[in-house]
Design a protein around this nucleic acid. Sequence first.
DNA 1: GCCGTTTTGTTCTCCCGTTCACAAACTCCT
DNA 2: AGGAGTTTGTGAACGGGAGAACAAAACGGC
Lengths: 224, 224
Amino acid sequence: MTARTPDSARDIPEATVARLPVYLRALTSLAEDGTTTCSSEELAASAGVNSAKLRKDLSYLGSYGTRGVGYDVEYLRYQIAREIGVTQDWPVVIVGIGNLGHALANYSGFRSRGFRVVALLDADPRRHEEVVAGLDVRSFDDLESIVAEHDVSIGVIATPAVAAQDVADRMVATGITSILNFAPTVLSVPDGVDVRKVDLSIELQILAYHEQRKSGLPTAEVLS
Amino acid sequence: MTARTPDSARDIPEATVARLPVYLRALTSLAEDGTTTCSSEELAASAGVNSAKLRKDLSYLGSYGTRGVGYDVEYLRYQIAREIGVTQDWPVVIVGIGNLGHALANYSGFRSRGFRVVALLDADPRRHEEVVAGLDVRSFDDLESIVAEHDVSIGVIATPAVAAQDVADRMVATGITSILNFAPTVLSVPDGVDVRKVDLSIELQILAYHEQRKSGLPTAEVLS
DNA sequence: GCCGTTTTGTTCTCCCGTTCACAAACTCCT
DNA sequence: AGGAGTTTGTGAACGGGAGAACAAAACGGC
């Protein structure tokens, strides 16, 4: 609607969306090194992907490169940030201030990448005395007022598994429509609410599967 | 080789491998509820997937169900655990004992799901005085001897981004062949070494992308 | 002003994963 | 014992993503 959105911004493949943040980080890294221009080959190497895949991904956003030259690092970085929607900060609430919640609250990468933690909530009253990362830990009952006040649409769940579904339900009820879930539970939410799950032990188990295979097959691991 | 492995255990699709831990958790949950038998429909609902997909996934492992009846929860649970390789504990080292490292070290889900943290390492000598989760934080230089002593093949990187590649290189040099990387960096490792990446801000950015779309399109979000 | 070189954007093909739909097989009831 | 009802396991169609290969376009040298 602004100027340069010929409604081409439609339906970027999910696999591409998942890689855009990687490209964004690679571009930021290149910019910090003083690089002003890069080819798809360089950027792909920096992001750890195939250059053809990178070019195809970028083509969904538009034609932001110059043939024979490459991409302007700063320009492309801004275009991707705009596409993802991280040119401005998203307010985020974190629920569950245990070990993981502490780590998340203190994680500086949120702030620097388009997110701002506006509140830390915990159901345990003993935690309400704490100050973590410069924020008071507040009662879970404050969720609704905080969401309303800061217009929060993204919530992070770092509670034990048993509490996660309840927290998710409350979040949805207050109007949160995107949830990042660290609890080892399958959340059920209504249509229109996005949930992404990060599960540490699942990742380890996937590694264990492949590890088991390696020790089983001595020297048959010669992929292309 | 034991009895029921007609070398059919070959080439389980990667997408299936990634879901097996989810099924395992769902089965454990069902078993704790006292359920002894379940249909693919029930298990699929519990795991948050399509029942056809579940059945196809399980069919790669063998025929562990009974037509007209369903699956024996305990039996299937054991079969999946055996396939993944978590019937015995895998020793794991964690490098980088900052906020996230603390949280990982204290995460009880590791121990209960087939993993045992055998050492915590950090490059900062000031951290070596600490005891976290009942383990001394030791010098990163001890990596090699620890890996040799406990026959470690899985390493977790929870360091700042700048240190991650160095840590990975050292890990690979000591014989570690599976790495779970929490640092926001693309690691390059030789063939035969598996790396899985968990990146908190990337997950949030993916959510932000969809969130931006939602606010843009008022009521066009009526998927099937 | 033209040609060779470089690099993007895109088309085409192949492969993996998902889903549907159904036959095979087991249980239960009569 | 036989038939009705269930539920698994799998063959086949379908859709999406990955990678190769190439045409289009911009730059630089002469």
